[in-house]
């Protein structure tokens, strides 16, 4: 697959504060690439530099061979952005929002009208076509942001935490639409702090933390490499750790204590499960490993402020 975005030694400083610290990555055409990380990890800053609304301190980003800098209208014309913030035009109706926005992309009026109707249907907002933005729910607004980002038929879509604050129905609808777009060949860049979202959508992702990339890979591969297949959680006092680790440690790939819980990571949990039954411990959970485990292992299980 062709590389559509190449970032090399990307650095972003806000005054003294280093938001992005020398990261490099490549995004291929047609894939969904995720930036996963807690608040303040530098995800949004990174994608803002990709779509040319934030000056790069040092390093380079090439988008389709063009350097991403703030005066590059070509990249912006070919990119659709689903922003994290509700940046809809609150003075206008749903329909007007779409029509006015299409002007900024020089879409002729008739074509704009056609695309607006199609896209409003695509995100199931037909009933709200002539309503003002203030009359929409959060989920509807988010759907309209998705529709608006598609007006210019972008080859690249950047979705910056597209489902933050949404109820499950709205979230699933957004996921379905994003998957549909990916299946149509659109390259998708997603930032998220939801592991489930990353697991649902991303072909490949990077885990970001404090401005750096900690790991890169497919969700499956990351889980496999970092955790294994299964996780055993035992809620027990730390005083018991030594005994438990002596007993269970050899059966697991690794272990970690976080707060009131002791975690064992394993490839094949059957042996450990059998042992657990023998030990007859209360408060144990045995479950498949998820991206969340990878994330917490990499970024630490303690609270990130």
């Amino acid at each position: 697959m062709r590389t559509i975005i190449r970032a090399e030694h990307l650095v972003k400083n806000y005054g003294e504060f280093a938001a992005v610290k020398d990261i490099s990555f490549e995004i291929r055409e047609g894939e969904c690439f995720g930036f996963l990380g807690p608040n303040g990890a530098g995800k949004t800053t990174t994608v803002r530099m990709i779509h040319c609304v934030s000056p790069i301190t040092s390093g380079t980003i090439l988008v389709n061979g063009l350097p991403a800098d703030v005066d590059n209208r070509k990249i912006k014309a070919a990119t659709g952005v689903i922003p994290q913030e509700m940046t809809l035009d609150t003075d206008l109706t749903v329909f007007e929002n779409m029509m006015v926005f299409s002007k900024f992309f020089d879409i002729p009026r008739r074509e704009a009208r056609k695309r607006t109707d199609e896209l409003i249907a695509f995100v199931e907002l037909e009933a709200k076509r002539d309503n003002k933005i203030s009359e929409l729910s959060t989920g509807m607004k988010r759907r309209l942001l998705v529709a608006r980002a598609l007006l210019n038929k972008p080859a690249l879509i950047i979705a910056d935490e597209p489902t933050t604050g949404l109820d499950p129905q709205a979230r699933h609808l957004i996921w379905q639409r994003l998957r549909l777009l990916k299946n149509q060949g659109t390259t998708l860049i997603l930032t998220t702090q939801y592991m489930e979202e990353a697991q649902q959508l991303c072909d490949r992702l990077v885990v970001m933390y404090e401005g750096k990339i900690l790991k890169e890979g497919s969700p499956r591969q990351l889980i496999d490499d970092e955790i294994g297949r299964e996780v055993v959680e035992i809620r027990i006092e730390a005083a018991e750790d030594a005994r438990l680790i002596a007993d269970l440690g050899p059966l697991a790939r690794g272990h970690e204590r976080a707060g009131d819980t002791l975690f064992f990571y394993c490839r094949d949990g059957r042996a450990i499960q059998k042992k657990l039954v023998e030990m007859d411990l209360p408060n144990t959970v045995y479950r498949p490993a998820t991206l969340e485990d990878v994330f917490l292992k990499l970024t630490g299980r303690s609270l990130v402020e």
Binding site: T79, L88, T90, F105
Partner: peptide
């Protein structure tokens, strides 16, 4: 408040 400029500059409209 409305973050309108943010949505404008994400299009070919410059700041």
């Amino acid at each position: 408040h409305e973050k309108l400029y943010d949505s404008l500059i994400a299009t070919p409209v410059s700041a």
